[in-house]
Amino acid sequence: MAFINLKTKEVQVKIVYYGPGRGGKTTNLEYLYNRLKDHIKTEMVTIKTQGDRTLFFDFLPMGLGEIKGYHIKIQLYTVPGQVKYNATRKLVLMGVDGLVFVADSAVDRRKQNIDSLANLQENLSAYGKNLFEVPMVFQYNKRDLAEKGIPVLPVEVMEADLNHKLKAPAFEASALEGKNVIKTLKEIIFNTALTLEHQLV
């Protein structure tokens, strides 16, 4: 649940980028950081393993200015995608307000996407939440692989695998090129903020 400070009229919204390892979660945040530097007053915090893997999490805070008299602050997090870091993933999910599920479009990553979504559901349940309660946006990342001759999953297959029950907004994207990265973020902020609206008195 978002942190709302009635005294300082400040709302902190936590959005977590979830998904399988090497799916492009950190690349999303790096792109956003480079594009939105003026709105991001602090450095992006990122802790990586050698070889470009996220070891702990990335953290990117940004301000949206004042809406209805409240200063809206967005905090973007990624989780480590590697299977073995589940304790960290679970911890990062604590108090999550909105989710972006970054799925990898490469054909050979199909199982990892499905497993990661199941893992998300399991970890949310530890906080008494489920996928249907938390605003979510799917991002089918790495669509550019097709142009390099690497087979990608058809979007219909990804929708059927991941989103056939949730029916959440979904975008084809290439985080590396920045395609639909901002659109994904706008969508999740919009949907998340709407669910918080009634709390802002």
Binding site: D38, H39, L64, I67, I189
Partner: peptide
Amino acid sequence: FRDTLKNRLDEVFQEE
């Protein structure tokens, strides 16, 4: 609220 939010998001991201 919806409109304000939408406009704000457009403002922040489009400008960038």
